[in-house]
Design a protein around this nucleic acid. Structure first.
Length: 734
DNA sequence: ATACCACTTT
């Protein structure tokens, strides 16, 4: 095929003419056309010179650095770079330092660090710019130590760094271990007079922010006289990355007051700092930035975390070029909502577009399967993972482990774990928390011992999973050992571990220990407050629960539905009718929450126990949803307390029609008749119970010996009463 | 003529 005709040239073109064509392709960022033109030039036997190669390389770099080109790292592009390299050597243009430097830069942008380094070594001459390109390349490809070493080597060889050198090198120090190197470079810049450039200050600001030294970042930022968009973006990002979300939004406002127009990075940084998607969306629409794919994706993500799937969907539709990241964000918002159907239609959409899942998208889908009905679907995606090779990815493997354990297929989860070559702590944690969530805490402990034997040390996630396993088993002693482990290893008692510890002590009957842990936490999070409130409530300490609730609000923590469940339960246990009414009202009116059935059941219990049956019935009538079994059962148990036979019978009938298999109400009814001495009725209920095949209630209690001495006594006196084997691993734990 | 700072999804 004649390439010339495809481009539209019929006669042998002159070199200047080709150069001006190349220039136009650079402007339109058309890498493909530039390459075609180059091939055509070779067909016509036109000899390219240094400028030709310079333009060609420029066309390649400018196109691949733009985010619109998804194939940045594709094999094709790398092969093209190699071919250009060959032609460059053949035509002897490699003697031009600037052309070789441009090629070096292209290699670095494609991630071919070794090729770039070799090219640098082969260069007969180098200047500061070649050194800069090399250092920058290493730095951008994550080879931070090498970048620093090269900087030293460059200085030793007598090249004096430019401001550009520093700008390229400083990002390599954006991690805590290298902060002192970063400070040295900062000092070097001041001494060497390379400090006037705002680029250097921007880079340093960002570096300090990444090292979590926000004060230094702020200080530098204020030093910048002419703050550019990049300076502002850096500072917004700095606040966001360090969790100072309000400050990020304030910085954005200041930026607007100083009339610096925002760009797409501003929007993205602002959104990643948890800014309101609505107002950011509005700003992006006004400025036209909403047409940018990365802005749209960030918006979808932010809407997703707020479960606004509708806006996410609309935004996704507005994308001219669909991409997997946006779709994953959309899928995760459906996952959060528990709408697996929508997740699946996203997947179907993805297949229509002939896109493939990546590890993140796969994990997102796996995460969405929670219902036992979804298990077959889970198997199908496991198969997808095997066929596509995704299941080899550690993220996916861990996702599969927790999927199988969620469906109570612990054995499969075990074998998946055993197939992982390099088991990470995360893999072990997936299985441990999977076992706990599947209600198999003993298996979780078993896995934990295996993990210890394979040489891994537990982290906060391991510990908190195991602690919640202890709750299920009532293993106070093991819980205490875990607490000791935390203290001995100086693990931070933060949100998860703190809450798990408090829960464990509460469930194991040690409210005073729970209290002590709670008081040791400086800034308890919502979940921690919730645990403490419902703990007090469980122990019948209603006044402590209410005091805790008001203290929490004083600290500026906004309660959620779970908080109110604890608060209402406390009122119910303590018979605080007025307080209960008040808090129910606060929940609805002040916090705009729609109560769940559990909240209603609590209130019905509150009224019922106080003997306010009329109010209880009125309350049920006014509910905005159908009362469920628990709501009526609560009322029935209140009838037992107050020996309300007539109402009890009415409620029992309701319960029977709601769920005749749940025999709990037979027992309640029989108790009610027994209290009243209505023995014939008792017999009748017992008969009905036998007929229905239910056994009333089956329950288990878990208790634990309080000290090792007690246990040893028990073990020696009657071994059969306690499973000694179960304890052995606990005793030889550390 | 060649090099540079700010950036999202589990």
């Amino acid at each position: 095929m004649n390439l010339a005709s495809s481009i539209g040239l019929s006669t042998k073109p002159s070199l200047p003419c080709l150069h001006s064509l190349l220039n136009s392709y650079i402007e339109s960022r058309n890498r493909k056309q530039a390459l075609l033109l180059f091939r055509q030039l070779l067909e016509y036997n036109v000899k390219p010179n240094d400028l030709t190669f310079s333009l060609l390389l420029k066309a390649c770099t400018s196109s691949s650095s733009s985010s619109s080109s998804p194939a940045l790292n594709s094999l094709n592009v790398k092969r093209e770079a190699n071919q250009i390299h060959t032609h460059l050597l053949k035509s002897g243009v490699d003697r031009f330092m600037y052309v070789s430097t441009a090629l070096l830069d292209l290699y670095m942008k494609l991630g071919c660090v070794r090729n770039a380094h070799r090219l640098f070594d082969d260069m007969p001459d180098r200047d500061v710019v070649s050194w800069n390109a090399l250092i920058c390349g290493f730095s951008r490809n994550g080879c931070d130590f090498e970048a620093l070493k090269l900087f030293v080597q460059m200085c030793k060889e007598g090249f004096f760094p430019h401001q550009t050198t520093l700008v390229s090198l400083v990002p390599s120090c954006g991690r805590q271990e290298l902060v002192s190197q970063g400070k040295s470079i900062h000092g070097f810049g001041i001494k060497a007079g390379l400090y006037s450039d705002s680029h250097v200050k921007n880079a340093l600001t960002s570096m300090y922010a990444k090292c979590a030294d926000l004060e230094a970042a702020e200080h530098l930022f204020e030093e910048i006289v002419e703050k550019s968009v990049v300076s502002w973006n850096t500072m917004i990002g700095a606040y966001g990355q360090n969790g100072f979300f309000d400050e990020a939004v304030l910085a954005f406002k200041r930026m607007q007051e100083e009339n610096v127009p925002a760009n797409l990075v501003t929007m993205v940084s602002l959104l990643s700092a948890n800014a309101h998607p609505e107002s950011t969306h509005c700003h992006a629409t006004k400025t036209g930035l909403v047409n940018d794919a990365s802005v749209i994706t960030s918006l979808i993500c932010q809407y997703a975390t707020r479960r606004n799937t509708e806006s996410g969907k609309l935004l996704y539709k507005s994308l001219p070029q669909k991409n997997l990241v946006s779709l994953t964000a959309l899928m995760s918002s459906y996952t959060e909502k528990g709408d697996l159907f929508q997740v699946m239609s996203c997947f179907a959409h993805l297949q229509q577009l002939e896109m493939k899942l990546d590890a993140v998208a796969m994990v997102c889908i796996l995460h969405g399967m929670k219902d036992p009905m979804d298990f077959r679907l889970g198997l199908a995606f496991h198969a997808y993972g095997l066929k596509s090779g995704l299941s080899a990815d550690s993220l996916v493997a861990n996702g599969l482990i927790s999927l199988y354990s969620r469906f109570d297929k612990i054995e499969t989860a075990f074998s998946l774990l055993s197939e992982i070559h390099e088991k990470t702590l995360i893999s072990w944690n997936s299985l441990i928390s999977g076992c706990v969530q599947a209600g198999r805490p003993s298996d979780a402990l078993e896995v934990f011992f295996q993990m210890k034997m394979s040489g891994h040390s537990p982290d906060a996630i391991t510990i908190s999973s195991l602690l919640s396993g202890c709750c299920q088993l009532g293993y106070l002693q093991f819980g205490e050992r875990l607490h000791n482990y935390i203290l001995r290893n100086n693990l931070e008692v933060e949100d998860f571990v703190g809450t798990a510890l408090i829960d464990m002590y509460i469930k194991c009957g040690r409210i005073e220990h729970a209290e002590r842990v709670f008081k040791s936490i400086e800034e308890p999070c919502l979940a921690t407050w919730n645990s403490m409130i419902s703990g007090y409530s469980l122990y019948g300490l209603e006044h402590e629960a209410l005091a805790c609730f008001s203290e929490m609000q004083k600290q500026g923590i906004k309660p959620d539905k779970i908080t109110f469940l604890g608060v209402l339960a406390a009122c119910t246990h303590g018979g605080l009718v007025q307080e209960g009414r008040k808090h129910f009202q606060i929940m609805r009116e002040q916090f705009n929450m729609v109560p769940d059935l559990q909240h209603y059941a609590c209130m019905v219990g509150l009224f019922g126990r106080a003997g306010l049956f009329e109010e209880a019935l009125m309350f049920i009538r006014n509910m905005e949803m159908e009362p469920d079994f628990a709501v009526w059962a609560t009322l029935l148990s209140a009838c037992c307390i107050h020996q309300e036979v007539k109402l009890g019978e009415y409620v029992a009938r309701k319960l029977f029609f709601l769920d005749s298999n749940n025999g709990g109400f037979f027992v309640l009814m029989s108790n009610l008749y027994a209290v009243k001495g209505m023995w014939d009725e008792v017999a009748r209920v017992r008969e009905m119970m036998r007929e229905s095949g239910g056994d009333g209630c089956s329950g288990i209690s878990v208790i634990e010996m309080t000290s090792l001495e007690d246990m040893n006594v028990n073990l020696s006196s009657s071994k059969s009463s306690l499973n000694a084997n179960a304890w052995q691993p606990l005793l030889s734990l550390y």
